[in-house]
């Protein structure tokens, strides 16, 4: 793999429109670049093994394999990317479940997009990022 200062990002989300938005957002930030998109958990796990991204944005409520199950599979498959849940659910249960399953962050989709980008940078520096 080529070594660059850029952070490679992958997104797993079953909403096509939101994936497009995230792709647009990541394109805005020169330090980030998108290496893959997956519309479901299983494809996501496979793609993560192929592309070995630094960062994975993972939707929580997906049809088929849900976010937590996908997270567990990713960890079980030794994917060492930092994994951030990106969701519209602000229920405490979901946050706890995600962190228990070893997520590196939990962001709400309705926070300011600038904050999403800033959080991704912080996550790359090893910080746990959680929306208010």
């Amino acid at each position: 793999m080529n070594e660059t200062a850029e952070t490679s990002v992958m997104v797993i989300d079953d909403h096509p429109l939101f994936r497009k938005g995230v792709a647009d957002l990541i394109r805005m930030e020169p330090a980030l670049h998108l290496v893959g998109e997956a519309a479901d958990g299983e494809t996501g796990v496979r793609l993560a093994q192929e592309t070995d991204p630094d960062l994975i944005l993972l939707d929580l409520n997906m049809k088929g394999l849900d976010g937590i199950a996908t997270l567990q599979r990713l960890r079980a498959a030794d994917v060492d990317a930092r994994i951030i849940m990106l969701t519209v659910s602000d229920s405490e249960e979901d946050v706890v479940a995600a962190l228990r399953a070893d997520a590196d962050g939990y962001l709400l989709k309705d926070i300011e997009p600038e904050d999403i980008l800033a959080s991704l940078q912080r996550a790359m520096r090893g910080r746990l990022v959680i929306s208010e």
Binding site: F18, K20, V22, D24, L25, K109, P113
Partner: peptide, 14 residues
């Protein structure tokens, strides 16, 4: 709608 609104928010940032 929730997905669309998130998307629109990103476009406003852009």
């Amino acid at each position: 709608l929730a997905q669309s609104l998130s998307y629109l928010k990103i476009q406003v940032t852009r």
